[in-house]
Design a protein around this nucleic acid. Structure first.
Lengths: 145, 145
DNA sequence: CTATTTCATACTGATTTAGTAGGAATTATA
DNA sequence: TATAATTCCTACTAAATCAGTATGAAATAG
């Protein structure tokens, strides 16, 4: 049930971009790499996926790097992780075509659980935006000031 | 984010045992294997884990096999899968010791999401019993009869 | 022109997965 | 008591996946 480092590092990377391009500045891989302590070569490959999907935009050359492709409140965790992870489902048979070809599909009672898990995870992912991830927590009492 | 075949096959196996030992009969690996279309040699290894944890009990020799170790309404999916899967958490850093040793742990905002996913999954697993899995669905209207 | 950056493709060592193999120990039954 | 059916135990292995490296081309600001 473990996430790959692509998902793990990729989310940290896009959070880093969101937080460090506030004035419209592009955030370079080498900056992300040193802040997040992740190999820059590996980050390149991971961020390429984010780029391809449009979640981030890039600029080449000096002072180049990456900025968000959309407003952080319009990017949710499902968008991000489904781009980064090869498959986000807990089992292959979540794909209806795989399920129908499964030689046990009409007696399988286990699948009920996989469906429930999948729904629970998707619910979290789709209801958490990138903005939710980067905004400061309001500590108890602070809202009175 | 995918489950291993140990978790997948293991749950199918214990469901199979629950359904086929109704009269106190032991269910053999070869029977489970043919019904579930899973290699018997591999099943042996998987069911050994269930045995070791006490979720199933065994009897050797002729007419031997496995029966549940507890009432199916007292076995939940968390019990089963945490025995079958090596780690059920989405990231290593769900383990607090790993988290504290992480060189980014005091700036990491990504972890909030991993915690939410973990809670959502555990919630499903702990609130679904083996009895829930094997009981027949009551179809709409049927409860009136 | 040059330094800095992304972009594209290919390669690789280590680890994990999904089993297989061989045989010992136990037990019901004929 | 012999035999067939079963679990139990340990070791092995081929293939896939993971996590990362390596090389260098293309673009761009100054």
């Amino acid at each position: 049930m473990k996430l790959s480092t692509k998902g793990e590092y990729g989310l940290r990377a896009i959070i880093d971009i969101a937080e460090n391009s506030k004035n419209g500045e592009y955030v370079s891989i080498s900056d992300i790499s040193t802040r997040q302590k992740i190999s820059d070569r590996y980050l390149e490959k991971i961020i390429a996926k984010l780029k391809k999907s449009g979640l981030v935009k890039s600029s080449r050359g000096v002072n180049g790097g990456y900025i968000l492709g959309k407003d952080p409140k319009c990017i949710n965790m499902f968008d991000i992780l489904s781009v980064l992870e090869d498959n986000i489902d807990v089992t292959e048979c979540m794909d209806i075509h795989v399920f129908e070809k499964c030689n046990n599909h009409y007696t399988c009672k286990a699948r009920k659980l996989w469906v429930k898990i999948n729904e629970a995870v998707e619910n979290v992912l789709k209801n958490t935006t990138l903005l939710d991830m980067i905004k400061q927590e309001i500590k108890k009492g602070e809202e009175i000031e």
